[in-house]
Structure formats: structure tokens, C-alpha cells
Design a binder for these strands. Structure first.
Lengths: 338, 338
DNA sequence: TTTTTCATCGAAAACGTTTTCGAAAAGCAG
DNA sequence: CTGCTTTTCGAAAACGTTTTCGATGAAAAA
């Protein structure tokens, strides 16, 4: 069976293409009976309008792009889930692009997105993106962009984040309350917006402590596996190793667990650990992992809804919105007193 | 800055649209010097060809669709990673659709895919899909489809799976060797292809045991959270509860852990557990979880490469290929003797 | 010189929609 | 029967490419 298009329907029905098109879009200029005839045949021949022809004519693609550093990561995959739910509800299609934490990949992807393939972009920066030129250019073409989690500080760009400063503060405070005298802060890179905020929360929490632990131990581990393990092992092998670890991303907490196994360090006795994480199995780990958990699904939902607000009324020049959702600190065994 | 198209470039360069188009595609009919002039201006004006116009004219979209039951799941997100890597290498774009384990969603999605929005489809069925009509119809339009993991038994459709029967057999055998007298098999649904194979492996392993444990305890839990927990709790509350659990998907193992916590059952003393799973934290769980781990990334890669072989030479009518990758059984604490 | 080839380009027709605008027919008032 | 509105439809132009085919002039062959 050949694909059926408007022309075929028109010929079959002795109507013009224009009439068939309008009938299918339920236009008022078409008689009810004609509409029915058209719909019946369209159903019978399983007519599906060609989205590319339609997109070209209407100059909109009914498609959005999601650009994220990685997908094999609970946080991002749950965010994506939230995005998909909203997009589907709006009848939009979702193209996903992975930068794999590579700045050059990010630039190439963003550059491609100028083509008009999508009507809007949802994005989280890769860890070493420090320059926003490519994003500014994309924005200047009129493309609606909403950043989430790892945001770019660009004027008039809506963002969805969590209360990273407060969470960083609370996590550090939590470790201090559990009698850690020295606390190391682990991150992938110092460039990201969230890292700056989380780390600032960490620093300020340390400052406010009456008995200052003094040292500001911030370790930037890079984003590839070998480097991470090495950095952590080095940190934990020092004679004056920290008593607490605050991991700014899940991956670092997992690595810490593995290093502790290797070095025969017992959590939480020898080392207490807390981490930003969306692991659904956090409570089942040995020991269970204390986490600051971000509302990933809601981040996706909200970011997507924000984007659609931009897409639907281009004319909104009221201030760009910055949504901040709350993370929750869940204390578990890895920071426990026992 | 307005978007630049071929017309604009042509006018600027005093050339025809045709010439500009051909120059950009490096056609032999265009003088080298002209090509350079065109490319220079295109770069300067940041020209990006309109993909929809191009797709319409060339009647191919450079896009593939991935249809999966869920994304917030380590297995599927890693598969997606593998797919994306290959697709990007080929210069293709990836549309993802989630069925959320809903058959009606699946039908609607597949129906939409008849529109020609994509050049090929990679798919894993949702758990209660028992009828393949919609897929057969899509295939009959000439759309290349490759199934992975949860496959549809359709003639001439390539598939990528793992050795589910053997793995089911080995997992059961492993529990038997660790002295489980009764073993329950947990699955979401009895409909899926993989479930049939895994369960058959389980059944056959039980049969071959000299001292037959007799009972074939297969429990189909459904796919929503409440039901799963309830089914497992009921199973483990019976006085003659099984000594071993073989979970056919990760989600069921996690639920089992939680139920055991609730019922104060100790793994592996009171109950041994093994599960199909791609959890990266399996070794860090309490106790560490014995798993049959599928090569998710490779499944994605291979499925995508198979799809591209179909897409590139439509004329391949040699037998459809069925790739079977090996899963690996990793024995850990949850089936341990201690 | 005339004819033939070659190199380089442009005109125009697609691809399948959507939309504007005008035409025809039908209804209605006068 | 005339003039007017209303209803229903179709012709045709766009959207931005790609591609076929013919045109042009220059170089090569006769």
C-alpha cells in the first residue's frame, strides 16, 4: 500500500486538495457532510499528514530539543521523563541530544539547532562549559531556550533550578552536626553554575561554625571515571584525611563508596558521606546513603511548561522567570552516628 | 539577524539558488572558486539548511524513533545511550517516545509513526502488548523496524536480544546450588517475549534438578508500584514462603528488598535473591545484589547499527537477523552462603 | 572556419502541505 | 426578476530545498 497524501484523497473524492485539507482541519468553510466524507476516506486509507510538508508551510516543527550531558544517569533520565510527559500532552515531539560532557559536542549541537529543526530547546550545560557565546547566538535567532539544573547565566533566559546554595549549606551543616571536623567537597568541575552555589553553601556553612574546621577542602575531580577514582583515592589516603565527604553529584558518592571498600575504610565510622543524588536505591545501599534529592521529575515538567509558555506566546517580554524548586535532605546511614 | 536561506545567499552572490545549493553540496558541476565564495558567505551568515524543506524534497528525514516503555530505568537509558552514539555518528537525529507501559499509548505512537516523520524505528514493547497488528501495519508501509529486548515476533524483523532462556536457567540453577528448596519467579507480565524465555529457563532448570523442588512459583506482578509491593508481600508472608527469588526485572528485586526490610526478613539468610538488573550500584547494596546483567549499551549500539543497515540498503531481502548477546551472571551477597 | 566537447551555471519543476482570495451557486429581500 | 449576502468550494501561491535538463560560452577537434 502506497502512502496516501492529500492529492490522492482529493482525486478519490472529486474534491480539490484545498478542500480536503480544510475538511481535515475541521474548517468552518466546509460543509459538514463533505467533512465527514473526507474523514471517512482518510481513516480508511489511514492518511497521516506529512509532518515535514506541514512544518515547512507552517514554519513550526511541533518539536523540541533536549540537550543534556548524559542520559545514563538517574537525574537526567527522570527529568527527561517529566519533559516527555508534558511534551506529549502538547502534541510535541522530543529530540534528545547528548553532549557526553564535551564542550565541543555542545557547540556543534547548539549550532545545528539554528536550523529551525525545533521550536524550542531545553538544556543543561556540560560540566566544562564556561563560555556562553554559542548559546547567546542561538537565543538571538529567537529560539526559546529554558535551562535547568546546570544553567547558563544569560539575560532573559528562564531557568529551573533547585535551592543549591541552601542545600549545600544544609548538607555541610549536617556533616558538622555529626561531628565531622574536616569536610571535603567533591565536584566534577568548578565551572558549573550549580557547583558555584553548592560550594558557596559549603564554604559559608564552614565559616559559621564556631569551632572552625578551617580547611576549605574543595576537590574538582574532572568528569572521566579514572580521574575521579584517582582523585578520591588520593584524598582519602592522606594521613589527615577528611572525616566527612560532601559529594556534589551522585557519581562521586558512588566512587567514594568504591574507594572506601578498596581502602578498607568504614562508612560512617571512618568517613561520613552525603551526596546530591537521585538514586532510587539510596536507602538500600550499604550503608544507606544520605542524600540531597532533587525533584527531578518536577524539574522536567516545570522546565517544559516554561518553554511552552515561551513558544506559544512569543510576545511575552515580561521578565524571564527563574524557578527554584526545593531539594530534600534525607539523612541515612552514611552520616549516621553509629 | 534574520535566518538566511538559499535565496538570500544567491542574491548576495549574484548566483542562482541552484548553483548555491550545488556548491554547498560540493557538486562537481560547480567551479572550485565559486564553491569557495559560497561557502565563505554561508559561514559568515551562519547558514543552516532548513531540515524540513530538505527532508521533504529528499523524502528522508535523517531521523529515527526510539519507542520504549520507560526512560527512568537504567537498562533503557543505557540502551538509549548506545543508540544515540551510533545515530550521531551517522548524522541522524533521535526522537524518543515513551509508552509508559501502556498498550494504547504504544498503538497511538506507532500509528503516528506512519506519517513519515522518521526513517526507521527502534522499539521495545510494553509489558502487556500481546497483539502485533499495529506493528505489522507499520512494517507493511516499508518502515524499517528493529526490536530489542522485548521483541515482537513478526516475520522479517531484525531483533537484538540477550540469551534470556540460558540466563533464566543459570539464575535458577545458581539459586538451587545455593540450597534454595523453593524458588519463586517474579515478572511484570506473562506476555513479553523475554518473560516467556526467562520463565522457560526457570522451569527447565527446576525440572532438571534431581531432588525436584516441585512447585513452579511464577508470580506476575503487574507493572504499577502498589501492585508489585502487594504481590511480593503476599508471597513472602505465606508460611511456606519461597527460599529464593528470581526477579525477571530490576524493579522487582528492589521491591523485594523493600518488602524484606518491612517484614524483617534477612537476605540472604531468610531469602536469597537474584535479578536481571543493570544497576550500577548492585555491588554497593545491602546486601550486594546478585545480578544477571545485560550488555545494555551494546544492545543499543547493535540494534541501531542493524537499523541503519536496513535504512541504507532497502534492497536487502536476505533473511532478517536475530542478534543474541550474552548476559553475565554476577554472584554477590544476596545469594551468598553466609 | 566549422563542429564538437567541456565546463559552468540557471530555469523550473518537484516534494506535500496551508492559506489567501476569488468564484460559483444558492438563498433571500426587495 | 434584480441585487445582495451566505455558503461552499477551488486555483494558485507560498514554504526552502534538490535535481533535472537545457543554455551559454569557451576550448578543443575537425
Amino acid at each position: 500500500m502506497e502512502k496516501t497524501d492529500l492529492k490522492k484523497l482529493a482525486k478519490e473524492l472529486n474534491l480539490s486538495i484545498a478542500t480536503v485539507s480544510k475538511a481535515l482541519r475541521d474548517s468552518w468553510e466546509i460543509k459538514a457532510e463533505t467533512k465527514q466524507r473526507v474523514r471517512d476516506l482518510a481513516d480508511k486509507l489511514n492518511y497521516q499528514p506529512n509532518p515535514y510538508a506541514s512544518s515547512m508551510r507552517k514554519r513550526k516543527s511541533q518539536t523540541i530539543a533536549v540537550v543534556i550531558p548524559e542520559i545514563a544517569n538517574n537525574f537526567f533520565s527522570v527529568v527527561l521523563d517529566g519533559i516527555q510527559v508534558i511534551a506529549e500532552k502538547k502534541g510535541f515531539h522530543v529530540l534528545t541530544y547528548l553532549t557526553h560532557e564535551s564542550y565541543t559536542n555542545e557547540i556543534a549541537t547548539i549550532r545545528h539547532l539554528q536550523s529551525g529543526r525545533v521550536d524550542g530547546v531545553l538544556m543543561s550545560l556540560c560540566s566544562d562549559t564556561a563560555d556562553y557565546q554559542h548559546l547567546v547566538r542561538l537565543k538571538e535567532t529567537g529560539m526559546p531556550i529554558v535551562f535547568f539544573d546546570r544553567i547558563a547565566e544569560i539575560p532573559d533566559c528562564p531557568t529551573v533550578t533547585t535551592d543549591d546554595y541552601e542545600s549545600g549549606y544544609r548538607a555541610t551543616e549536617h556533616l558538622l552536626q555529626n561531628h565531622c571536623k574536616t569536610i571535603a567537597y567533591l565536584s566534577l568541575s568548578q565551572h558549573t553554575s550549580i557547583n558555584r552555589k553548592r560550594q558557596q553553601g559549603y564554604i559559608d556553612a564552614l565559616k559559621n561554625l564556631p569551632a572552625k574546621p578551617g580547611k576549605n577542602l574543595a576537590v574538582h575531580c574532572g568528569d572521566e571515571n579514572g580521574g575521579i577514582m584517582r582523585a578520591i583515592k588520593k584524598l582519602l589516603s592522606k594521613k589527615n584525611r577528611p572525616e566527612g565527604i560532601f559529594a556534589s553529584v551522585e557519581k562521586l558518592a558512588i566512587a567514594t563508596y568504591h574507594v572506601c571498600n578498596e581502602l578498607k575504610l568504614k562508612i560512617p565510622d571512618d568517613l561520613k558521606v552525603i551526596s546530591f543524588s537521585n538514586l532510587r536505591t539510596a536507602s538500600l545501599l550499604s550503608p544507606s546513603l544520605s542524600t540531597i534529592t532533587q525533584p527531578a521529575f518536577d524539574i522536567g515538567r516545570e522546565a517544559c511548561e516554561l518553554l511552552f509558555r515561551k513558544i506559544e506566546k512569543k510576545s511575552n517580554n515580561y521578565m524571564s522567570e527563574h524557578l527554584v524548586l526545593k531539594s530534600s535532605l534525607i539523612a541515612r546511614g552514611s552520616t549516621g552516628p553509629n
